[in-house]
């Protein structure tokens, strides 16, 4: 009995996870994701990271060619979801402002904005999917 239900729960879990992997038509194009991502960027990210992605010296880190943006996707998604208050060097420099968590954004919005950031300001990196965001959101910090 219990076994049967747990099977069902696991099954539902996988359907939930992969539901975003089979996206509706408007999500299939990377270009569309970039365009949506730019809108999210301008509203949520630009006030601190600036229009050119260059950030503010000593305060808000740049998003241009940094290991945080181009590197591990999970870490990058986690920063958007949970914010960042640690004092760590980003490519050798320190930044003092706290970043607020943005878990109010949807998986799709986070995927779009990170795809936009990873392919703007001279960056070139793979797109991020809503599924990848969902997996990080589901995983406890």
């Amino acid at each position: 009995m219990l076994k049967k239900y747990s099977f069902l729960i696991i099954g539902l879990f996988f359907i939930w996870i992969f539901s975003a992997a089979i996206p509706p038509f408007q999500n299939t194009s990377n270009k569309a994701s970039m365009q949506r991502g730019e809108k999210v960027y301008n509203k949520v990210c630009l006030p601190c990271h600036m229009a050119d992605g260059g950030g503010v010296p000593n305060m808000n880190p740049p998003l241009i060619q940094t290991s945080y943006v181009l590197g591990d996707k999970t870490k990058l998604i986690s920063i958007v979801l949970h914010g960042m208050t640690d004092r760590v060097a980003i490519d050798g420099d320190y930044y003092s402002n706290n970043m607020a968590p943005h878990n109010d954004l949807t998986d799709q919005q986070i995927a779009d904005v990170l795809t936009f950031v990873r392919n703007s300001f001279g960056n070139k990196a793979s797109a991020i999917t809503p599924t990848e965001v969902k997996l990080v959101r589901f995983k406890k910090k």
Partner: peptide, 9 residues
């Protein structure tokens, strides 16, 4: 001025 990055501050 749109960015602090290249400015003398």
């Amino acid at each position: 001025i749109t960015s602090a990055r290249n400015a003398h501050r």
